[in-house]
Nucleic acid binder design. Sequence first.
DNA 1: GAGATGACGGGCT
DNA 2: AAGCCCGCCATCT
Length: 108
Amino acid sequence: MSFRKRVYALVQTIPLGKVAGYGHVAAALGSPRAARQVGFALAALPGGTDVPWHRVLRSSGHIAQQGDPGRPLLQRGLLEAEGVVVEQNRVAMDRYGWVFPGGASEMG
DNA sequence: GAGATGACGGGCT
DNA sequence: AAGCCCGCCATCT
């Protein structure tokens, strides 16, 4: 099982209408500093995958850019299609920010 | 085995 | 508050 495979398996656990950050995904995989690789793995995803890659954004809720202006544009449409409100290529991580199970260390 | 790259993330000004 | 720069880790060659 490669790092990328873990990414695909993990993002598939993101519920509809929610989003997550690359760093959060990487951290959930054991490499909180491998945020780049999360995107690297998602970038390798083909068209028509079973992986909800569009539910993965930057740490600030911003949509990433890949050089292809169509990718972030599609992501924006998919998010809105799920009920996620996007403003200026940004979503309210405060409202749609998904948190992976197992690392539930909220206190208070 | 080593070098180069990239859907990121945080600090400074 | 917004923009620029380097470092990080895994993948590809």
